[in-house]
Design a binder for these strands. Structure first.
Lengths: 178, 178
DNA sequence: GGCCGCATGTAACGGGTTACATGATTAC
DNA sequence: GTAATCATGTAACCCGTTACATGCGGCC
């Protein structure tokens, strides 16, 4: 099965949500989808061009500053097809911290403890960000999408909490072990 | 900061743990590090070649069938340097399921529920695998590395459990919401 | 002798990041 | 008018996957 290019669908989906220009899409991803997605301008603009060539989107007559696009009928169908398609398997997510930990015999215990502590600090920062976004969404519960947005956030929050617990338990194990 | 290539260090680390041939490294990663790492032969052999050119590893005189390598002094130093180096930041891990969920307004509720159920099924499978490996390591606790291996596994177990909880909660939210 | 599995290797390709280039508008 | 920021775009490069190629040993 040839891998599908997810970037296409991120862009189609954002277009369907009212993000009309490349610049705006990048900004929305960086602020609202940043807990599970990211993108660079080097992907955005070429992908928009390709989607237009495939007839999935069209450029709107643009009076203003930004180049505006809109979904075509085909584009909307393609988005709906992809959204409905089941996810096949769990990806293996490479994890630098765990790779280092797996080989931690080659480092001092202090250094390893520090690494986990630093990891915990980053996780707490992230958790606070998530909770702030959560509060923000809940204060504007108008949108049709709000339920789904909150679900994706909850995913991040639960995962982050579990990893914080792991940090605590690991520190205890390593400190206790000597 | 120019990104470092982790594959190099995975290979150096495995060499330090007694995996001497490319074939064996790939096999070890697929069986023992597969909860947080993966690799392909298309990376292994070119990377070995490059590491040898850089003087971090040397080919041993090989009587047998497999090409054997060993860490040089420089190679060991480079591994130790990398292991001790702190991890800078939390990576954004792209997540197809969440991307689909974020745009789930464009799919039927049944399809979305199914996707989450299927995800839960895969997570349970994975959890069982983790627990089996955990038991296996605990039954041979001889190794110096066992503590660290168990920590990396615990990471996977806690994360997987948290995501299973998320699946349950999400299913409830979506079913209840209508 | 022919087939199968092991082991090593390479080439083509695709996705993604980074750095750079360019115009247009706004700010002072 | 020139500096900064917005907005679009492109090219070079790196990493990783996939598919293919090759030689070797054992097996029946």
């Amino acid at each position: 099965m040839p891998k599908e290019n997810m970037t296409r669908y991120a862009i189609l989906g954002l277009l369907a949500s009212g993000c009309t220009s490349g610049y705006e899409m990048k900004h929305t991803i960086d602020t609202s989808l940043n807990h599970f997605w990211k993108i660079s301008f080097g992907q955005v603009y070429p992908t928009l061009k390709r989607l237009e060539a495939e007839g999935l989107i069209v450029e709107e007559v643009t009076d203003g500053e930004r180049k505006q696009f809109a979904l075509t009928k085909n584009g909307h169908a393609e988005l709906a097809r992809w959204v409905a398609e089941p996810s096949v398997e769990l990806p293996v997510q490479r994890n630098d911290l765990l790779l280092k930990l797996y080989f931690a015999r080659h480092a001092s215990k202090e250094v390893t403890l520090q690494k986990i502590q630093e990891h915990a600090r980053l996780l707490e920062e992230r958790l606070e960000t998530y909770q702030a976004i959560d509060a923000m969404i809940r204060s504007y519960p108008d949108s049709n999408d709000a339920v789904y947005w909150l679900l994706t956030l909850d995913y991040g929050i639960r995962k982050t909490r579990a990893l914080l617990d792991w940090c605590d338990a690991s520190l205890e194990t390593l400190e206790g072990g000597n």
